[in-house]
Structures are given as C-alpha cells and as structure tokens.
Design a protein around this nucleic acid. Structure first.
Lengths: 346, 346
DNA sequence: ATGAAAGCGCTAACAT
DNA sequence: ATGTTAGCGCTTTCAT
C-alpha cells in the first residue's frame, strides 16, 4: 500500500466502525477496554496517523495562527516569538511566521489569508494597518490581537508596554546623573510607538523643568545604521548633547560606534541609553544601559489572549500592560566635568 | 447572515453552478466572459472568499511547510528564515516556525505532525534526528530537506556550507598573521557541524606544519556565556594562546568580553575570530573578523529545493554547497611582539 | 461552456 | 458501547 492509511483501513482491521476508531483516538470515551485495545492494535498494525487536513474541515479550524511582524531582522521579535510559540504549543497551536517589511500591501495579504481561514487567528506586531480592514472588528472575523504596537483608532485586544513612562524613566535616569542637554534618536515617525517614546522624553524634561531643545531630536528607523547617521547629525551641533536617548538598542549601538569614530568615549564624554534590552545589549562594549521589555512574557500573554478569544471566552477590552525596567549598565555616567563635549576634527 | 458565505451562496446569486464559480476563481478557463462577469459580481456582492480548509482537503495539501531550528535565540536563523519566507511566498507557501530547543522529543513531534499532513514538507535545521525516523526516506513520506546542518548517516537533500574549509580559512588567516598558539572554542560536540569546524582548525595547522596543542581546544555551546567560560579556561594556560578561533560569533563576543575583563586587549594582545557573521558582528567593538555565511541565500536555496520536491521534480542527491567568505575586521592582528601574553591578576 | 455529482477523510449527532 | 449517517466546502471528472 503506497497511500497513507485512512481511518477506514483501521476500522476494517479492527472490525469496528470508523466512529469507534475516532472515539478511541479522540476522546478515549465510552469504549470498552477490549475494543479499545483492538483498535490500538490495528492502528499500530497499519501504521495509521490521522489526516489533519480532513479533521480541519470537519472542525472548521486549523489549529494554527499567524504571527506577523514588521521586520524580521530585529532580534527583539525572536524572543517574542519564543513566548508565543511556547504558549501556542501548550494550547495545541502552531505558528506561522509572517513578515510585512512595513508594506501595507503585505499586511493586507495576511488579513486576506486570515479571511480564507488559512489560520484561526493572528497576532499583529506591525505599526500599520491596511486602510480597508475595519471589517476585522466584526463578530465572524477571526480574532486578531495586537502585541507591542497598538492602534489608537481601532479597538483591538492588545498586549503592550507603557512606552511613554518607560521612555521617561530612561531620560529621568540621565537627568538624575546630571545631564541637561539630552538628545533623542527616535523611531520612524509618525508611528504611535515612536511618538509615545518621544512623548516620554519630553515628559521627563517637563517634570524636571528642563526645556528640550528641538534640534536635539533626530529621526531614526530602528537600524544600527540609522543610529550612525543620526548621531553624526547630533555631533554637528554646538554645544553637543552630553547624552543620547535612543528609541531602541540597535540605534544606540550605532550611536556609540559613531561617537567612537568621532573620538568621543562612552560614557565618559557622552552617555547613551537604548531601549528593548536585546540579548546583545549586555554583551556590547560598553554594556548598554537600556529599558528592558519582557519580550517572552509579552509573547506568551498575547498568545494566551488569542487563545481565550479562540475558545470563545470574553476578554477584557483594556489593553494588557507589561512591566518594563530600567537596566543601568556601563553606557551612562555623569556628564564630563567643567566643559563642553566636542568631537575631534574629522 | 453571520456565517462566512460559501461557494453555494455565490452560485445562487450568480445563477450558475458551484463548478462554474470554482472555474472562474481557479483557472479562469472555459467560462464565457459574460458568465464570468456575473460570477465576479456575485462574489463581490456576497463578499465571498474561498475556504482554504475545504480546498486543502480536496487537494490533499496545505501549502505550508515547517522550518525547524534548534534554538530560537540565535539571530543566525532570523536571516535564514527571511530567505525561506521570501521564496516560500513566491511559491505560494506559508512557513510554520518550529523550535526543538535541542530536544529529540520535540523534534519527533514535528516529524509526527508532518506525518499527519499538518504541513506539506519540512526544512530541518537541527543537529539531531529522532532515532526512529528512518521512515522519512520512504516515498510516501512528505519531503524533508536539511539546511545548514546535515546527517552523514541519512541521505536527505541538503543545503549547507563546507564547514571544514571555512574553518580552515579562518585559522589560516591567523597563521598568516604569525600566530602559532591558536585556541579553538568549539560548538557542542559530538555534532557533525562542530566536529567539521574543529577538523578545519586541525587541517589548517597540519598544512602549516604546526602541532595543535590539544589543551587549546575547549568546548562551548554557541552561547555568549559559554564563550566567557571557555575563554576563562584558556586564560589559565601557560603560555596563553595568542589567538582564539570561535565556532560562532556569539562565543567570540563572549571571549572578547572575558579577555577585556582579564585586562587583555583585542586584537593587540589576543586575536579573536568568529563564525557566521551575524548582523551584530560588524557593530561589535572591536568589529569581528569572522566567516560570512550566506544565510538568506541558504534559506532561499533550501526552500527552492523543497519546492522542487513538493512539485514532484527529481532533485540531485548531491548536497548544495553555499559559498563562505572570510571577513577580516578589527578583532585580528599579528601577535604581540617579543613575549608572552599573560592576564593580569584577578 | 456549463451542470451534476462524487468524494477528499474525518467527526459528531443520532440511533440502537 | 457501538454503528449509521450526514455532512464540512470545495474541486474536478464526466456528461451534456
């Protein structure tokens, strides 16, 4: 026999109906031990394994979900995925990895696949939503939860952090060290996550009674290289900032490398703070002071939320807020005494 | 109507049979333009999208594959995934991300799911194979291809690099710089990939007529922390090695940090070479000299190979070998002049 | 060019 | 405790 054996083959071998075979394999309920034994033996005999595709049709579910991120290259997502995967496995789901590369069209494709029931639900970690996807709020649409990001205009179940407060904590740390001229390398605006972190930056200034110089805010895009470029711009300012708050760790690494190239030492001459606490933040030199996000826990929470939705449970409409923590390492210190920081000529 | 509309709803609205609707949506063949128009209008009217689950049963396929890695935390896989995903999308597949965490049992679970047709095929990036899975060579078993790793005892279609030659190139670079006392921090033995890289290390020594001191070979497990620990061991030797070849970049970073802690500067006092060229290798300080692997291309090639297998095409039984390249950056230099390298007291 | 009908393999409601 | 049966929604062969 070259085809995969079906439940009928087992039924024939065990001299029972297919229903009984299904019962033995699914619920282990209401089957005489003797019959059960016979079925199990037949299963082994013909080397049967159920055909999930048929089961899916019958049950109208796939037991799989999409996890869609904006940018595969950020290791931040690796750990979120780790949490999602662990929880999904516990709940009996598998996880499709999706990747929009920030393209609205690519995002739309995932919504479309969801609609065709390619998967039972979706965890969205992108900052953009296709413009025409308001139908996702309708009851018969498969459940979608948002993680890390969020959409103020759309009332979707969400797991995230308080970016404003977390960013403010980072900047307050710099202020407490004595810094007064603090730059901000932001994420890609106008996304809400970037906006929130900048608002935290401003809020920390406000609370300390410091006026934030708008020239000290430079736009990045979360890559190491954008950290280089943004930092180069900042280095051209007079007086230079004595500290830089970066909206993620990659940009902080880029900024530090650029400062080193300019002959400035971190943290002695310039302090740098990152955001995310990716695995490499602690291994970097100097080790990055940064905001820790509970990535894995966030992934788990998102999957748990989606699992509840898939199980038909009612969930709170309030976003689930995950805690963050300022991790002080070696990239921050009090500002250099008496005098101004200037790059050497280049 | 609260349920998802079916093809029957469209057929009714367009006054045609379901077969015609299917024809319009699938092949665009043999349908009068006029009828076709009417069907399309009805599709829009009832907001129909096909049910993939039913299609899957009919076609006996899921158009999805598993990508199974050993350790989610290595950013190496991110880029492989990127290549796999891009190629898969082009071929009309989606990718389940799997993760064995080096557990044979977890690996077995993926093979089991493959057997139940949870997915159509699998790309394996793990170094271990469940002992009882020899059945995967049988014709009716879904196709499995191996990427990056390989199994000498099992004749599976494979995409990989020549680890022996690549490792030898790294060590030859150190020898060419003048190093004679070169340590090796290996990956987890007895896996073939770790073994091959060590063999390359030995081969380079052999070709240069240098006797490799076996005490200079220390076992790691591909984590940053194992790089720390291994390097600490090496630092206890007298005389210390003047260079360290690490079987991946994470361990190289750990080794460099440990050397720094011991008061030794890289590359002035000790040279360090990594392997993989992960994204952070270039951003590290000092930037890592390492072996570049074409991760994304490897992912694409693996998916293309799997796609061919899924399409029923015959594929070569020879492994597809991807090119590697030595990238010389700042973590290697000639050995310190006249005299021996010793750590300061700790 | 179109329709009728079979059937993919399974599960669960219903019957005994 | 077990069997019978009706689909799940689609695609495709066969007929017209």
């Amino acid at each position: 026999m070259t085809r995969k054996p079906t439940i009928k083959d087992v039924a024939r071998a065990a001299q029972v109906s297919t229903a009984t075979v299904s019962r033995v394999l699914e619920h282990a309920s209401s089957v005489r031990p003797q019959t059960r034994e016979r079925v199990l033996k037949a299963v082994a005999e013909v080397d049967y394994s159920p055909n999930v595709i048929a089961r899916n049709l019958r049950r109208q579910e796939t037991r799989s979900i999409f996890l869609v991120v904006r940018d595969m290259h950020n290791p931040f997502y690796l750990e979120v995925f780790h949490g999602v995967e662990a929880e999904a496995r516990a709940l009996g789901y598998n996880v499709f990895m999706g990747n929009t590369e920030d393209s609205v069209q690519r995002g739309r494709a995932y919504f479309q696949m969801l609609k065709t029931r390619y998967a039972d639900g979706m965890i969205l970690m992108t900052g953009k939503l296709p413009p025409d996807q308001q139908e996702i709020l309708q009851a018969e649409y498969p459940p979608v939860v948002v993680a890390s990001e969020y959409f103020p205009e759309l009332d979707l179940p969400t797991v995230r952090i308080d970016n404003v407060t977390a960013a403010a904590a980072a900047v307050k740390h710099l202020i407490a060290l004595g810094h007064r001229r603090i730059a901000h390398i932001t994420g890609p605006t106008p996304e809400v996550l970037s906006r929130d972190r900048h608002q935290g930056y401003l809020q920390a200034h406000g609370e300390a009674g410091i006026i934030a110089d708008p020239r000290l805010t430079v736009r990045g895009n979360f890559t190491i290289d954008s950290g280089h470029r943004a930092c180069r711009k900042l280095a051209g300012l007079k007086p230079m900032p004595t500290a830089v708050f970066c909206s993620n760790d990659e940009m902080a690494m880029g900024a530090i490398n650029e400062l080193r190239r300019l002959g400035l030492s971190v943290p002695e001459q310039v302090s740098v703070v990152g955001f995310d606490d990716i695995v490499f933040a602690g291994a970097f030199h100097p080790p990055l002071t940064t905001i820790h996000q509970p990535r894995q826990a966030m992934g788990k929470a998102a999957m748990r939320l989606l699992g509840d939705l898939l199980a038909g449970l009612a969930v709170s409409s309030e976003p689930i807020m995950m805690p963050t923590e300022l991790i002080v390492r070696g990239s921050t210190a009090p500002p250099a005494q008496g005098g101004q920081t200037t790059p050497k000529e280049v």
